[in-house]
Design a protein around this nucleic acid. Structure first.
Length: 282
DNA sequence: CGGATTGTTCTTCC
DNA sequence: CGGAAGAACAATCC
């Protein structure tokens, strides 16, 4: 669920609040999230974040010792939450408070009392230590990323070469395009008027251009709106992203197409729940 | 209560 | 052998 715009929203909030603050304590409540690394807390205590970067859906934290990095992925339900001071947990009621405590797997305490929590109901996310080489290997796995200088029409057209898979699977492949997930792929293809089941080698140049432009537009707008909170995604202060108001097909199965009034259909493509308008999309 | 959920990786198949 | 498709996997909720 957190895709490029959501992860970018979190990155900006963490950058704004955490850069330069010294970590005074780290608690690992759930070992598997940091891959059972017993030295995790010890290695980070006393350091601060000097840079918080992102590629695709992966967050990359650079630490002040110049050699330690953290790689963090939210997967489906992961969240980074900031809590200020010793009392305010940010939770609105007792239930929310207990759920927050139950699913918090790492707590970073900063000088001055600010706390950063890694929270994940399903525990699919991770925060792992890495060195410079491991960071480079991780970066190398990703394809072109929307809103960067490499995301040109020429490069975008290139990812279709020798591909016979569906356009949906192509756009979901992180090694080709970095950062798109199920929600934004459906939204992009609806706007580009291309069916998600179309084979990549049947897509015309004009359609590729349409998909390319829709991708840039949707991703930029979604970042502007602080991402999409559909089920689980939250900002670091627990607030929601509002791009959910701009969704045109995702989660609208059975509702009417905003352009032609046809019922939006839901099927399974590339193993994912897939929403589309059978009339507008060709 | 088991089916649905999703990003990623693994396995199988053509 | 390479790519594509499908399965597996993580864990929880309704």
């Amino acid at each position: 669920m957190p895709e490029l715009p959501e992860v970018e929203t979190v990155r900006r909030q963490l950058e704004k609040n955490l850069l330069g603050r010294k970590i005074v304590q780290v608690f690992v409540h759930t070992g598997k999230i940091v891959q059972n690394d017993a030295s995790f807390a010890r290695a980070l205590t006393g350091l601060s974040f000097v840079k918080i970067d992102r590629i695709g859906k992966l967050l990359i934290f650079e630490m002040s010792d110049g050699e330690t990095f953290l790689l963090a992925h939210l997967r489906m339900t992961g969240k980074f939450l900031l809590e200020k001071g010793a009392t305010g947990s940010g939770a609105k009621n007792a239930h929310e408070k207990s759920m927050r405590e139950k699913h918090t797997h790492i707590t970073f305490v900063f000088e001055g009392g600010l706390r950063l929590l890694f929270h994940d109901v399903r525990k699919f996310g991770y925060v792992v230590r890495a060195d410079k080489d491991q960071v480079e290997v991780a970066r190398g796995r990703f394809g072109i990323e929307p809103l960067t200088k490499d995301f040109t029409l020429e490069n975008f057209v290139r990812i279709f070469q020798n591909k016979k898979t569906t356009i949906k699977a192509l756009l979901l492949d992180q090694s080709l395009v970095a950062g798109l997930g199920n929600i934004y792929v459906d939204e992009v293809l609806f706007r580009a008027k291309v069916l998600p089941t179309r084979r990549a080698d049947t897509i015309s140049l004009a359609e590729k251009k349409g998909i390319f432009q829709a991708t840039e537009k949707v991703i930029a707008k979604a970042i502007e709106k602080g991402g999409t909170t559909f089920l689980d995604f939250a900002h670091t202060d627990g607030e929601s992203g509002t791009f959910v108001d701009n969704l045109q097909v995702f989660a609208r199965a059975g509702k009417l197409c905003i352009h032609c009034g046809t019922e939006i259909e839901k099927t399974r493509v590339a193993g994912r729940g897939t929403h589309f308008c059978p009339t507008c999309q060709k």
